[in-house]
């Protein structure tokens, strides 16, 4: 069996100032999957991928790319990786063509004008190939960053916040590109703090906060958790116990019996709400107000952090 395309073992990072950005992190990424690292700003997402790519030195631990240690076999490991950092960083005086060709050479690959051409066409940059970076729009610059990262045909692509500050059209383009890459066998790891982006794109999601990887799950499962919603009924008359008629319903009392809270799956075909309300009406349980809420990302983080602590 071939090793995972990326294997992170007990990686930690403490910056010189004493700030611990990463607690021991263990993570294995399978070949060909799209993996989203989901977490708020400052969670450690960028630090983690920077360690894998070699732009930040880890404090302890080990990273293997296709079985190659990123420290002892860094040439082999790095030549398999493409990185698109969060911030646009380009030599603004170079032309698109020159800067992309430079990246390919830097990664030790022999020239391949045909491949670079198809790459630039794919990213709608071909017509602008002789333009200098300084003349390009923000969206185009971001695509140049992607072209550079793909110039050496990496097997593992990191996209750090690919859609931060990007308009809707470009965001859709980006998602389409990631799917096309996956179809060609490239493994994609992206970071995001948008839950819907993770949902849209990823096969698996890792939730990271405070330098800890709180959970790694298949997207569908995570969304089932995140998709939980709550219906809160403010009762006319407070109740001390849940009436027996509601046995088997996922309900609980809150606010000293003044509220009845029903949890349901927003994605399910039958949420059970009409049945519940009819049942309450029949039993004469009146309510004066109702409210529904979705479990927020913050709620999930808080719960996960509490569970880990």
């Amino acid at each position: 069996m071939s090793p995972p395309i990326l294997s992170i073992s007990a990686v930690t990072k403490t910056y010189k100032g004493g700030f611990t950005a990463l607690q021991p992190i263990d993570l294995a990424i399978e070949r060909g999957e799209i993996f989203a690292l989901l977490g708020p700003n400052g969670a450690g997402k960028t630090t983690l991928i920077s360690i894998v790519c070699g732009t930040v030195a880890m404090t302890s631990g080990q990273v293997l790319v296709d079985g190659h240690d990123t420290r002892t076999s860094y040439r082999t490991a790095r030549s398999m990786i493409g990185l698109v950092p969060q911030e646009i960083a380009l030599d603004i005086f170079a032309t698109i063509w020159d800067t992309v060709v430079f990246s390919r050479g830097l990664f030790g690959k022999p020239p391949n004008p045909a491949y670079i051409e198809s790459l630039l066409r794919d990213l709608s940059l071909w017509d602008k190939r002789d333009s200098r970076v300084i003349e390009l729009s923000g969206g185009m610059k971001r695509r140049v960053m992607i072209a550079k990262a793909l110039s050496h045909e990496p097997e593992l692509l990191f996209l750090d916040e690919p859609t931060a500050g990007v308009d809707v059209a470009l965001r859709r383009d980006m998602w389409a590109l990631v799917r096309r890459l996956r179809d060609t066998g490239v493994t994609v790891i992206l970071t995001t703090h948008y839950i819907d982006e993770a949902e849209e794109m990823a096969d698996r999601v890792g939730v990271i906060d405070g330098g800890r990887l709180l959970l790694v799950e298949r997207t569908a499962q995570l969304m089932r958790k995140l998709g939980k919603r709550r219906l809160t009924l403010v009762l006319q008359r407070p109740m001390a116990t849940i009436p027996p008629e509601l046995d088997g319903w996922p309900v609980e009392l809150a606010a000293d019996g003044q509220q009845l809270v029903y949890s349901f799956d927003a994605n399910a075909e039958d949420t059970g709400i009409p049945t519940l309300l009819r049942l309450l009406g029949e039993k004469g349980i009146d309510f004066k107000d109702l409210d529904t809420s979705r479990t927020s990302l913050e709620d999930i983080f808080v719960r996960l952090v509490e569970r880990v602590a």
Binding site: T76, L90, D91, L106, F107, G108
Partner: peptide
């Protein structure tokens, strides 16, 4: 210009 990331992440 922060393009140094590319040099640091290259197999060089």
């Amino acid at each position: 210009t922060k393009t140094i990331f590319e040099i640091l992440s290259a197999p060089l």
